[in-house]
Design a binder for these strands. Sequence first.
DNA 1: ACGCGCAGGTTGACGCATCATCCAGATTTG
DNA 2: CAAATCTGGATGATGCGTCAACCTGCGCGT
Lengths: 139, 139
Amino acid sequence: MQRQLSTHLYRHLQREFGLSGSDYEILVNLSEAPTGRMRAFELGEATDWEKSRMSHHLTRMAQRGLVRREPCAEDTRYADIVLTDEGRAAIAEAAPYHAANVRAWFIDAVGKERLEVLEDASEAVLVALAEHDARAEHG
Amino acid sequence: MQRQLSTHLYRHLQREFGLSGSDYEILVNLSEAPTGRMRAFELGEATDWEKSRMSHHLTRMAQRGLVRREPCAEDTRYADIVLTDEGRAAIAEAAPYHAANVRAWFIDAVGKERLEVLEDASEAVLVALAEHDARAEHG
DNA sequence: ACGCGCAGGTTGACGCATCATCCAGATTTG
DNA sequence: CAAATCTGGATGATGCGTCAACCTGCGCGT
């Protein structure tokens, strides 16, 4: 089910707006940032991606003109990521439709009560994984 | 959560047994087939993959010696996919550990009651997607 | 003051997934 | 019977994600 849902969601984004799910995630985070600029590792925390994935993806998005790397004052060696006008336009156009799809296909289909159960279940799985990691580290 | 769980599951398979999640899925299906041989499109139905993904993946698995394409009696133009000894050994070794991980990290963590709710929810999402597809086709 | 570790980030190689396109043989249709 | 169509499948190009290796300054210990 998860696969089918993601496939539908991302296919829609791709066909209607030329954005991948990953593009969308980055653009949303950037557009929600008050200053409109973030460091790569902040995006990493927000999206929970590996740093190398982030770097590769930002490179590709920069080539398509959605995003720009801009030298960051105060921290010589690193760069800020900033939305281009094009990037801002893309997310503004896509977001309402994507949100509507998520609501129709997932949130409404699942319903409020089951959604709460699902949140608890997710939490429980994450706890189980964290416990396993903890054991692996010092075991 | 779904991403974290899959990552853990597949990382374990990869590191301990050198198998990807996709490899595993194919091997399980083949090893469960009474005759030990299946046509590619049967595997496609069982896994719900696109045909081109199947073809590419079988090519890679064949190169690694897990699987073999064997001309199929009765149906000249197509080929059966058969497990090699190596493939059978790989799945026999990996399956118990993988199943244990799925149980510990997912099934037990979620618990029986929540699991049932989750099944209903999945079903509801699939219905919503199917309805959308139906509308799109003749609309 | 200097060396060294480390956090943030980049790069290259590789495997994987999708799309579009093509192919052969079988089946329908005119 | 011939032409269009359908089915099962292969292939090439391209984008994505991971791993391993590497680079670069900052900060810490001595």
